[in-house]
Design a protein around this nucleic acid. Structure first.
Length: 495
RNA sequence: GCCCCCAUUGUCUAGUGGCCCAGGACGUGGCCCUCUCAAGGCCAAAACACGAGUUCGAACCUCGUUGGGGGCACCA
């Protein structure tokens, strides 16, 4: 399947919760295929279950996709020729389709109460049978059923699965899947409130919207023979099916629970896309990471931009087995993409993290610092730890770390004073001007570079680790550097 | 319980009967670079779940076992 015709694909989430990595990947693959083939990517909101509807979920979904860099050609906010794209606004369409099915003899009205259904199920379970609709209303005379509907009897519509035989459906990455019809149920397709269930609504919309490839999560694997039945009952053409694998928790044992998901945030990770931004991840890193969970490229390349992916993604290198989420690898990709950002771009993205942390942002200083902090950032919010001292008026060195290794406080103070004199005598502090004389001082004192540099680092940055000393001093500026060394000397003298 | 899917190092994966005493990446350990921390370079340890078959030959095919996942709703 190297070159395929323009596809029409869709991502069809239900606004019942937060948007997570798995949804992001499904959306991404659909999007990539559309862009690669010059096709269309459609966003459709599957909100037929008002009981589970979560306000704000749709907005989070939209924000998450946009943040990842995924846009859609048809759907909410952008419209399109098959509008509306919210299933709650399409109920008449589904009802009409359900009526067609009933007329064809592929569906029937069912008047069973929830109580009876529960009772039947209980008996079946106690007899160790599979819980399944017993078909009572299936045997009803159609005329009589119609009568009861007209009388206003509360009813649902069920799909009529053949009693015997089996059905074979073809999945692009799993091959043929055959199921006995006896294993399938006469599922409800229209609820008593008149709204369709996913099984009907999604099939109807996929057909009406001309969807050519259905790429969705593997949670649909077991119901998809039913979906194929429904499509065939209408006499419609089947789309190509791709059922993606699921994401497992980092241990590889099971799916992530809600509790575990919220616990994750404690150590700087999250399975919710919206959280990732606040945690300092960039969309480039996240996209690269999720694209590779279940897909790989021939030549072992692992660095991909969205543009690369659009070009290189293909359906036949998908992997059907479940993948454990590996946040360490996300960190790697995030750092990698941060390092590949332009100086301007990175400065621009770092700025909000600096101001949000309560620091006084100086854009010039930030821009100057980029080359020496870039390779030290795994996430954008690391900028505080790595380079916060650039944006402080004064720093608070740790007195213990101010004392150079192997020296006494007064000896350290002595060295600091010497360094001060050297630096003060310079017209300005730069790596070229300051490093040679300081190294001289090191040599003359019979010390090691690390001893003196460590002392100065602590004095000037207030940090144990920092970007290279002299480059940092150059950016901080002579006045501030001298001030900070002076304060350090005072601290040392007091010990 | 029943149905369906999946199974290569700690993790993501390459591998479609001989090119594999299994390749890449992250992580881990070591070395180099080095003012710290990173980044970078080099090296190393680390896997075909198990058992039967098929075959001259199996990580690759078949069956079974085990393990994992999903589903069995008037949820999606």
């Amino acid at each position: 399947m190297n070159k395929i015709d323009p596809v029409r694909v869709r991502f069809a989430p239900s606004p019942t919760g937060r948007t997570h990595l798995g949804s992001g990947r499904t959306a991404l693959y659909n999007y990539l295929l559309a862009r690669q083939t010059g096709g269309k990517f459609i966003l459709r909101i599957e909100d037929t279950d008002q009981k589970r509807y979560v306000p704000g979920a749709e907005q989070e979904l939209i924000d998450s996709l946009r943040w990842l860099g995924i846009d859609w050609d048809e759907g909410p906010e952008v419209g399109g020729p098959y509008a509306p794209y919210r299933q709650s606004e399409r109920r008449e369409i589904y009802q009409e389709c359900a009526r067609m099915l009933i007329d064809f003899g592929h569906a029937y009205y069912c008047f069973c109460t929830q109580e009876r259904l529960d009772q039947v199920r209980k008996e079946q379970v106690s007899r160790k049978e599979n819980p399944r609709y017993d078909g009572l209303c299936r045997r009803l005379d159609p005329g009589e059923a119609m009568q009861r509907v007209n009388n206003g009897d509360r009813h649902v519509v069920r799909f009529k699965v053949p009693e015997t035989g089996s059905i074979t459906a073809h999945d692009l990455l799993r091959g043929d899947i055959t199921v006995d019809n006896s294993a399938l149920d006469d599922n409800v397709i229209i609820k008593s409130d008149g709204l369709a269930l996913y099984h009907l609504a999604a099939m109807v919309d996929d057909h009406l919207m001309g969807i050519t490839h259905v790429i969705r999560g593997s949670e649909w694997l077991s119901t998809y023979p039913l979906h194929v039945h429904i499509i065939r009952a209408f006499g419609w053409q089947e789309p190509q099916w791709v059922h993606l694998s699921v994401f497992l928790k980092p241990s590889g044992k099971g799916k992530m629970s809600k509790r575990e998901a919220s616990q994750l945030i404690q150590d700087g990770h999250s399975i919710f896309i919206k959280d990732l931004e606040a945690l300092g991840y960039i969309p480039e890193g996240v996209v690269n990471w999720i694209a590779l969970m279940g897909w790989s490229f021939d030549d072992h390349t692992e660095y991909f931009t969205m543009k690369d992916l659009v070009e290189k993604f293909n359906l036949d290198h998908l992997n059907p087995s479940p993948a454990a989420i590996n946040f360490t690898k996300l960190d790697y990709f995030n750092g990698l993409h941060i390092r590949n950002l332009s100086r301007e771009d990175l400065a621009h993205r770092l700025a909000p993290y600096i101001t949000n942390a309560g620091y006084q942002l100086d854009e010039d200083i930030l821009y100057q610092a980029i080359p020496i902090i870039r390779e030290r950032l795994v996430t954008l919010d690391d900028v505080i730890q790595v380079a916060g001292f650039f944006f402080k008026e004064t720093v608070s060195p740790d007195p213990n770390r101010l004392v150079a290794a192997g020296l006494s406080p007064s000896e350290s103070a002595h060295i600091a004073r010497k360094a001060y004199q050297i630096l003060a005598s310079l017209p300005q502090i730069s790596k070229d001007l300051a490093e040679p004389p300081i190294r001289n001082l090191v040599a003359e004192s019979g010390l090691k570079a690390g001893q003196v540099f460590g002392l100065l680092r602590e004095a000037v940055t207030g940090q144990k680790d920092s970007p290279p000393l002299f480059e940092s001093m150059e950016i901080i500026g002579k006045d501030k550097v001298l001030e900070r060394i002076q304060s350090a000397i005072i601290i040392l003298e007091k010990i």
